[in-house]
Design a protein around this nucleic acid. Structure first.
Lengths: 259, 259
DNA sequence: CAAATCGAGATTGTATACAAATTGGCGCAG
DNA sequence: CTGCGCCAATTTGTATACAATCTCGATTTG
């Protein structure tokens, strides 16, 4: 192990402030998949993540590097990078020498995720009500329309995806980048939890709750927004059946190419 | 791009529950650097992280892959993986085609980090006071002793490291794995913030505050623990000077091998 | 003399080759 | 027929080679 001979530490400074001019965002909220360099790895990251978020990939589905590589036309190097980022987000699990699998959170983990959401999201909703711009409100309303359209149009997968993304948009509206990132991770994992433990027929009919939240924001009522978010999350949690184990595997190529 | 010909999706199931028997923890709290596979990448991750947490690596320091590779005797493949994990934690920043740098959070980001900590940590302290085991208390007390020893022994870097780790231990004691992970990230970034904006001479003399917290836990007083944590964080934030810019670069090989 | 340009060196991005580990089947013994 | 152990095939882990990009100094030009 050659330890000596490190001659660098030259004076090339980074572009200050840790966020000097990042590229536009490809569909997700702000700054998804931090730590990813190339655009190719990020594209795979986004694609697989959306497949998971919309329940096209079920928990415990295996994600072999070679398969993903041939699906996306990238080498394993890139796929690997994307998988590690997904693992860091908790949506997949990497078992050393065995491979990557879509995560399958247990009931304890499910409770934890919603505990965390109940702690963070109501607070963010309140702050959002204090600071939102008209542009944010407009974006949220547009999102609500798309969400309802997906629900009424029977586009189940799209509805699930948008329902989760609403919460990310709310978090972003609060202007707290750090907490918003936490919310993004929690929402992602919630998608898996819903896929495993949801028991009601009327999936994601929370559209009305979402709309009420946006109205509270538009009216500039922090306490109301906070309470509405708390209730909404509690009701979602109530719609889960956190008692018995779970199951489920789905096809890979079909799920990823069809979205 | 060859899309077809994906023949797998065979039935190799992952070891359920997403945490089936992980290895012992190398110094940090539970589950540091999720998404890292090999032990070598994790070793580099831990080493660089500790160098940053103890302020042996200053913000904006460049971290060239080749140098890290020769320091640790690993190939760039491994180093790259570790760097991406560190970037995901927000302690380093990767600029495409330019390389990795120790992060240099601005004042806005600093406020955000402490906002998030004020939201999460008091709550976790309260839960910890409800659920701690005697073993947890004992571990915390042992940690306090080490912390005070480092402070009185003038081991400045060690003191900084342990001071941050105390908060991680507290979060772990609450038994909320997810929120504890968030706290770990926030504490890491706080180390950088303290390195940049600390203005007082009596660095990390918060030992007394830490001891008071442990006593509140031992006494099983959730509200007290919550309040103590809130005050402690507020005081720490008060010790920062969040007005002007910052600077600083340090040597690389010395910082990494000297710890 | 200042400023822009070009090129050599250095550093990161990506692919591929090879090594190590795991899986699952097959054969054999009890 | 069941259970154990071994072997082949598949998959992941790691190193290295090459290409693309950036940095920075030297040279040239207005």
């Amino acid at each position: 192990m050659t330890v000596g001979g490190v001659k660098s530490a030259r004076s090339r400074a980074p572009s200050r402030g840790s966020d000097g001019g990042r590229a536009a965002d490809p569909g997700l909220g702000g700054r998804a998949g931090a730590g990813l360099r190339g655009a190719r790895a990020r594209a795979i990251y986004v694609s697989v993540l959306e497949a998971i978020l919309s329940n096209r990939l079920s928990p415990m589905t295996r994600l072999p590097e070679d398969d993903l590589g041939s699906i996306y036309g990238a080498s394993r190097t890139i796929v690997r990078s994307a998988l590690e980022a997904l693992a860091h987000d908790g949506v997949i699990v990497i078992e050393p020498n065995r491979g990557a699998f879509v995560a399958s959170p247990g009931t304890a983990e499910a409770r934890e995720v919603f505990d965390a959401r109940l702690l963070i999201e109501p607070q963010l909703a309140a702050r959002a009500a204090e600071r939102v711009s008209f542009a944010d409100i407009a974006a949220l309303r547009r999102h609500l329309d798309a969400e309802e359209a997906a629900v009424h149009g029977e586009r189940q997968q799209q509805a699930i995806l948008l329902s989760g993304r609403f919460h990310v948009l709310m978090a972003d509206a609060a202007g707290q980048v750090t907490l918003a990132r936490f919310v993004r991770e929690l929402v992602s994992r919630s998608s898996l939890i819903v896929a495993l433990y949801w028991r009601r027929r009327d999936a994601t009919c929370a559209c009305s709750a979402h709309r009420a939240l946006v109205e509270a924001l538009a009216a500039g009522r922090p306490e109301l927004a906070q309470q509405l978010m708390r209730d909404h999350l509690a009701e979602t949690l109530d719609g889960l059946d956190l008692t018995d184990p779970r199951q489920g595997v789905s096809d890979l190529s079909a799920a990823l190419t069809g979205g």
